[in-house]
């Protein structure tokens, strides 16, 4: 019930994740490497791009490398430690939230931590290597703080799109599309977006907060944008918890599954 018992639970799930990875060692290694290469390929594109064009509205290769380090670490941590996020719509549709709802732990936290993605380990490896290459020592503390904030945005967004399952029946495809859209939007230089697009990326799909704003803050720190970033992170987190909890009232536990077919 308390905070400490939830931390203990977190530790137990990590143990299970390690045990599972060891049980399927070869697959684990392949997936970690595949994801790290996947990230590297995407960065190669930007190397080639900036080799030809140098600057996009003030963003250069360096900003983009910081963006990728932040992006891969945020998604990596979200995937390793809160990896069950992607399953939420499926768990809702198939009535598999029952498991969590029968146990004496906060359900959303419990759902999120109960699965870990091996692919995401590859993201973390890549992000750390890239960060070590591109960041100066003095940038690291702020960078790590931004990693935490970005991870919070990523997980909150995942919960929000996943919660669509409570309201629209089978929302797996919708949630995945919005999630992929979020990744695409947050993996491009924020400087290319103007006007309405910028507003959307700082509200509806908070991709700008995941990478754009933190990268710009690392280059040029202002307290006002930092305040907005932290405030938005808190708002999104609370919003995701509220929407999820309200959604639980509509949960059907797969009761009507047979009737649907």
């Amino acid at each position: 019930m308390g905070f400490i018992s939830h931390i203990k639970l977190f530790k137990e799930y990590l143990k299970i994740a390690v045990a599972t990875a060891l049980e399927y060692r070869a697959n684990f290694v392949i997936q970690v490497l595949a994801m790290a290469f996947n990230d590297a390929f995407l960065l190669v594109f930007w190397f080639l791009f900036f080799d030809r064009f140098k600057l996009i509205n003030g963003w250069a290769l360096e900003e983009l490398m910081i963006l990728y380090a932040l992006l891969t670490l945020a998604y990596g941590i979200a995937g390793v430690f809160f990896g069950n996020r992607s399953q939420i719509p499926k768990l809702i549709a198939e009535g598999k939230l029952d498991f969590y709802l029968n146990l004496p732990k906060e359900e959303l936290f419990h759902i999120l931590i109960s699965k870990s993605s091996s692919f995401a380990v590859g993201d973390i490896v890549f992000g750390l290597l890239l960060g070590a290459y591109v960041l100066t020592l003095s940038q690291w503390p702020l960078f790590l703080l931004f990693v935490v904030i970005s991870t919070s945005f990523v997980v909150s967004f995942g919960v929000l799109v996943g919660s669509l399952g409570f309201y629209f029946g089978n929302a797996e495809e919708t949630a995945r599309t919005l999630w992929m859209g979020m990744i695409s939007l947050s993996s491009n230089p924020f400087s290319i977006f103007k006007g309405g697009a910028r507003i959307i990326l700082l509200t509806l799909i908070p991709a700008g907060f995941v990478t754009g704003i933190p990268v710009e803050l690392l280059k040029n720190f202002t307290w006002s944008w930092f305040g907005i970033l932290v405030g938005a992170a808190v708002i999104f987190l609370l919003l995701s918890i509220i929407i999820f909890r309200r959604g639980l009232r509509r949960y059907e536990s797969g009761s009507m599954m047979t009737a649907r077919i």
Binding site: A26, I30, M35, L42, L48, D51, R52
Partner: peptide, 30 residues
């Protein structure tokens, strides 16, 4: 043989993205 289709998919997809010219025409490369 490799047991992991998703990994292969990721790598092929990214190869096409970059070296297949999906993201930008190959003429822009060095």
């Amino acid at each position: 043989w490799l047991e992991d289709a998703e990994s292969l998919y990721l790598l092929y997809q990214k190869t096409i993205f970059v070296f297949g010219g999906m993201f930008m025409p190959l003429d822009i490369f060095p």
